[in-house]
């Protein structure tokens, strides 16, 4: 599913974000990326949805080599990857329904097709009754649910999440984690960068710890020991 080989990322300003990282994630896995701020988690996440391109090494998603993609192929790869963020990134001038349907319209699905799948997805994330609300009328947790719905509406095989619970209180965060877990059980691979160790501990999934741009620890499901 995901294969990183000897990947390094150096930003144009000279900052070295990742050094010679190799990582494999199988289809259907749920993986946490942990580590301190600035360790390179977000850069790693960005390499996965091709927001950044590795300076050295190879990045494969579903056998597609992201380093060698031609610009017009990037949108096609992205359609198979859902992304959610700490700051939601919803369009404030669109309703909940439109925010989710938008993701389908821009890839060419017609209104009829998108209406049914948008409604299904909003039901899945528990927002069926708020589809006509604008993001500003929703709580943080609800906004993140809209993001999850948007990320999943095109049925991607991979969901990457960069601190999705960072702006939420614990209870709301758990709601989101249950949702992600549910989606993972339906077959979607999930890679999530987080600081919330409480969540990592309780979820008991595979944990990859990034430190100073390198993988410091890669622990199989259920084996992660807490102590930093």
């Amino acid at each position: 599913m995901i294969k990183l080989r000897n990947v390094s990322k150096i930003y144009p300003n000279g900052a070295r974000a990742l050094s010679n990282i190799s990582l494999e994630i199988a289809k259907g896995e749920f993986v946490f990326l942990v580590g301190q701020s600035g360790a390179g988690k977000s850069t790693l996440i960005k390499l996965l949805y091709r927001e950044e391109v590795a300076t050295r090494g190879q990045v494969y998603i579903n056998n597609a080599n992201l380093i060698r993609l031609k610009p017009h192929q990037v949108p096609l790869v992205r359609r198979n990857i859902g992304v959610i963020f700490q700051d939601f990134k919803l369009l404030p001038t669109k309703t909940v329904f439109e925010n989710v349907a938008f993701a389908q319209h821009v890839i060419g699905k017609n209104k009829k097709e998108s209406k049914a799948s948008t409604e299904n997805m909003l039901e899945l994330v528990g927002l069926g009754r708020k589809k006509n609300a604008f993001p500003s009328e929703l709580s943080g947790g609800e906004q993140q649910r809209v993001c999850v719905a948007r990320a999943l509406v095109n049925h991607p095989s991979l969901l990457v999440a960069d601190e999705p619970t960072g702006n939420l209180d614990m209870e709301t965060a758990w709601g989101i984690m249950e949702l992600l877990n549910h989606i993972n059980k339906l077959g979607t691979t999930v890679v999530m960068a987080t600081h919330a160790m409480q969540i990592v501990k309780q979820m008991n999934k595979r944990v990859v710890r990034v430190e100073e741009g390198k993988i410091a620890e890669d622990t199989a499901e259920g084996a992660y020991k807490f102590g930093f």
């Binding site: 949108p75 790869v77 992205r78 359609r79 990134k89 369009l91 938008f102 821009v106 890839i107």
Partner: peptide, 17 residues
Amino acid sequence: EKEIQIMRLVGASNSVI
């Protein structure tokens, strides 16, 4: 800026944007 960023994120081609 945000709108374009999101369009790109969900896989919109340049012409659609």
